[in-house]
């Protein structure tokens, strides 16, 4: 019980720390980042939108790796972490779509467009949601873990498609500004602030993943003990 209390206090302390750091990053981005030559001030949404997107993609990569681990090692712990990473991934994907839509209205004149980047990102959100619905609908056990893991690997395959969508197809969404041949097209000060906001968002994502995973494991453990108490 003492270990549990220490763990919970650590969880809260780390949560406060990561959100405080992120808050500072966003404040700095809104107040001190230089304005954009073409978009003016509204481009500052980038400091939330892009980190959300990258965190969503990282969640998908984590889900794919954990899913492969579940398939080959048949690890119930990996299956729990998979479900947590799918939830966290869904949240960040939805935030990417919402903030992107809000940014798109004043810059493109539309809330939504069926271009390749937006459509494949929406597909990612639907895949995450489908994964969670599927996982919840089956009884816990190795069969559910294996089938969810297969779905988790498929979800991971969408991310490279999302990333390459702006170069494979003609899209409304802008092409890569950071990872491109010839170096970044962004102002160096903007890049530094964006990278800091990205680190902050990844830390939030990691904290959410850890916190959710511990809760899911606790829940499973309680259900298991509760069943064994009632069966005696």
């Amino acid at each position: 019980m003492i270990d549990a209390r220490k763990q919970d206090r650590l969880t809260l302390a780390l949560g406060i720390a990561v959100f405080a750091f992120a808050g500072l990053c966003w404040f700095y981005a809104l107040k001190f980042a230089p304005p954009d030559a073409a978009q003016g001030e509204v481009y500052r949404i980038i400091y939330f939108h892009v980190p959300s997107a990258i965190t969503a993609f990282l969640s998908s990569a984590v889900l794919a790796v954990l899913s492969l681990w579940t398939l080959f090692k048949r690890s119930p712990t990996a299956a729990v972490w998979s479900k947590a990473s799918a939830e966290v991934g869904l949240i960040f994907t939805v935030l990417t779509l919402v903030t992107g839509s809000i940014w798109g209205r004043p810059t493109w004149g539309v809330w939504w467009d069926w271009d390749a980047r937006l459509t494949t990102t929406l597909l990612l959100a639907l895949l995450y949601a489908g994964y969670l619905i599927f996982t919840s609908s089956m009884s816990p056990g190795p069969q559910r873990d294996r089938m969810s893991a297969a779905l988790g690997v498929i979800i991971g395959l969408d991310v490279p498609i999302i990333y390459k969508s702006v170069t494979w197809w003609r899209t409304l969404h802008q092409p890569p500004s950071l990872l491109r041949s010839g170096g970044s097209s962004m102002d160096p000060d903007m890049v530094k602030i964006l990278m800091t906001c990205l680190v902050a968002m990844i830390l939030i994502g990691a904290w959410l993943l850890w916190t959710r995973s511990v809760n899911l494991k606790l829940q499973a453990s309680i259900e298991e003990h509760s069943h064994s108490v009632h069966s005696h």
Binding site: L30, G40, E41, V94, T99, I102, W103
Partner: peptide, 23 residues
């Protein structure tokens, strides 16, 4: 450019507000 004529504050407030609230 469309973006430089529109008041950016409501859009930034909405984006950051919704994002931080959800997290």
């Amino acid at each position: 450019m469309f973006g430089t004529q529109t008041d950016p504050v409501p859009y930034m407030a909405a984006a950051y507000g919704i994002g931080i609230f959800v997290l």
